[in-house]
């Protein structure tokens, strides 16, 4: 990790030691993007993990009609791509730099090298990535259960048989 980027304060790196950062510097890289430049897309760096050192990234989903749904806006210190890095499934969304942007990037090959050369650091980093995903999972699960309960309350007032089927039943065929 280059000295001129202040990403050591990012939540995803909490608890890492200076030696850990030295090890990470060997396996990650920094990338700079011009305003509007693609940070990741279907095939480009889709399985990498990013920490925004400067600038910001807007995550978009292309809709069939050509419009774009903005899924998230992230700024300095934000991290994304943990799930894609760890489970190997590439993202389908598109990431665009908002303004001049610099990210620290770790791809699957870099993580594999870290596991082989510095397994303790790799475990610490993966635990931190897992912690970030756990927080997001709680938020998403809470929202999902709220939506399910709201839909159920609305559907029960309709009284129709189909409407009484739970939202999850319809989604998953259960």
């Amino acid at each position: 990790m280059a000295q001129d980027f202040d990403i050591r304060g990012a939540t995803v790196f909490s608890g890492l030691t200076p030696d850990d950062f030295t090890a990470l510097a060997q396996v990650g890289r920094r990338e700079s993007y011009l305003p509007g430049e693609t940070v990741f897309s279907g095939n480009l760096r889709a399985q990498s993990f990013f920490v925004i050192a400067d600038g910001g990234v807007e995550v978009l989903r292309r809709e069939p009609d050509g419009s774009q749904t903005i899924l998230a806006r992230m700024g300095r210190g934000a991290a994304f791509g943990e799930a894609a890095l760890l489970d190997g499934h590439p993202r389908r969304a598109l990431g665009i730099a908002k303004g001049s942007t610099t990210c620290w990037v770790l791809d699957a090959r870099g993580l594999a090298r870290l596991r082989a050369e510095q397994p303790v650091v790799a475990t610490r980093l993966v635990a931190n990535l897992a912690r970030g995903m756990a927080v997001r999972l709680v938020r998403a699960s809470t929202r999902a259960t709220q939506v399910v309960d709201q839909r159920r309350a609305a559907n029960s007032s309709l009284g129709a048989g189909e409407a009484r089927r739970s939202l999850m039943d319809r989604l998953f065929g259960r």
Partner: peptide
């Protein structure tokens, strides 16, 4: 956790999609 997060994000995208559209 990565798999569960991807699944729940998929569910949320269908039942509670983001409203910001460009």
């Amino acid at each position: 956790l990565a798999i569960q997060l991807r699944e729940i994000d998929g569910v949320l995208a269908r039942v509670d999609p983001p409203v910001i559209v460009a």
